[in-house]
Amino acid sequence: MSGRYLLQKLARAVLTIIVIVLLNFLLFRAMPGSPARIASHHPGVTQAAIDQLAARWGLDKPLIPDQLVAYVNATLTGDFGLSYQFRGEPVTEVIGDRFWPTMILIGLGELFAIIIGLALGAYAGWRRGSAVDRVGGGISLVLYSMPYFVIGMPLIIVFAAGLGWFPTSGMFDAGATYASGLDQLLDFAHHLVLPLTTVTLGLVGAYSILMRSAIMETRSEDYITTARAKGLTDGRVLRTHAFPNALLPMVTIIAIDLGYVVAGAITAEVVFNWPGIGTLTVDALQARDYPVLQGIFLLLSFTVVLANLVADLVYGFLDPRVRV
């Protein structure tokens, strides 16, 4: 990958983030009622807090430049204000607490879905019309069309409520004390199984369907005929010639998907009451906790931009034609 390509992509990402920050500023200022008034509707917010808020954000001063400067300054220092809902806890801390559960759940879910989906799709596309293709294709299509709660509810009914193998919700047993870190980890893993399965199943269908068509497209390429003419085994042609080429369009698709990881997590988290960004968003919306929502909005935007940047870099690494 050349330095120029890298620089170009980085510059684009930075530019996008600047635009997002500005948009975030305007969006929440453009909403009806001043931030102070919205805050005052909140039972937990005192007049003193509102005054403090107004002073902090320069609400008595003009929008541009004073309020903007104050906002950009605060954003740059990682100060997103205080949550209304959580008794004035800083937004960064509120979101920070919820960030890792989401990353683990969705990150692992994506990882499994990508591995299983790409392998299944590649095999199905390569052996079009085979049993794997038909059965796998059917299952993929069904899963693809099912939202998380449709996948998650039956899992809860059967494996949690019915068989009692797994807990129905949460991340740890309520009020549990642990003898060791390992115990705590095991409890966590126990709680993770069902939500993780749900997320994996929810994502795997799309990846497998897309990979199947990507492989089918490469199948008819001349270099595949060349590889077969070389007397390579079918599996080898698939692994070393078709797969790396079919992966190229997938990288972009996966990256776009990763960008919506957090957004997509909302229903999955709500079904299992998983204490992540998804449930936090729902809570914040219900409580009209604007500072938290604003923080989440920024976080979501960053993940999209970051995912796209990673996609560009991975693509540049995989495809020698863009490395020039």
Binding site: D222, Y223, T226, P244, N245, L248, D319, P320
Partner: peptide, 11 residues
């Protein structure tokens, strides 16, 4: 083959 651009694996 004709047109080695396509007959060679681009990656």
């Amino acid at each position: 083959f004709q047109g080695a651009m396509n007959a060679l694996n681009p990656v």
